[in-house]
Amino acid sequence: MSQQKLVIVAHGIGRHAEDFKKQWEPFLLPLAQATGVKLQVEGLWWDDIQQALDEKYDISATATALAGQLGFPLQAGGTAYQQARDFYKDVFFYLCAHEMSTFLQIECAKKLRRLTKGQEGHTLLIGHSLGAAMLPHVIWRRFGSTGENLFHSLILLASPLGMCSPLPGLVADPLEIMRKLIKEYQTASRTELLGAFGDCWGPQRLNFINNRRDLVCAEVTYEDSLPNIPHVYVKGHLLPDIQKEFSGQEIEAVATARQTVQKFAFGEARLKAMVANHAVEVYLASPPFKTTFRRLLRA
């Protein structure tokens, strides 16, 4: 008898259509077929709220104009311009404007609850990029409200939870946002938060998967010029003062909670490959993802 699983996928930064799950399905469905599991894929689309907030607060236009003033050659309408706009908007609303971040988490929580329809125990969640920060926040907030985590499992692709903000008052630390969500954990350290979050899952049900060449979740060193700005040459880390991936202690805390952090290497350590190395397709096609996804479908 074949099992049935619901897979809910959450997108990351950038523009996404309501049916963005179609981009994920060609990777997920064949894996499910091979394991004999009947799969239903649903997309947790939250770009609509980000767009609505952007239209009201006019963030992306302001920030892109500011970047232009600072000398970044962003030609209006170009790809780099669009990517910069999306990046500023998503990061601003989620990590800088705290009240809007709460609004986004609550919207996602509502959408997630409607999508699962009480089937949390059979629901595997997959988040990519900012979606892989949002999902832990939503689940942890729910844990604070109910005292339990009902979801089957979680895969976080290129999660920014490993990032450590040097200016948390200005740009929130994605992991430390969790500290504010449950008042009993307001004094917890990063490792304690990570351990406690990991511990509310069954063994190996929480899985971080990171590309070693992805700036969002790995300490990538470059010897390269910035795309479109050849006079800016980077030797070493692009953002040297920011921790981008989990520290050894943090990985240990995840392991103690019986969860996993897996790494793979894809793409060139070139600045022009930054976006390509972060793409969701790279993650969905990676061996650690395939293995983990198959294992969780059978679990």
């Binding site: 609505a52 907030l53 009201k56 607060y57 006019d58 601003f92 800088c96 404007a97 705290h98 809007m100």
Partner: peptide, 22 residues
């Protein structure tokens, strides 16, 4: 939240107003 921040007649705002809601 929708009524407070995204009501159709709420008017247009700016980056500073978004930050000040904290």
């Amino acid at each position: 939240f929708h009524r407070k921040y995204l009501a159709p007649d709420e008017g247009q705002a700016n980056i500073f107003e978004a930050l000040a809601q904290a």
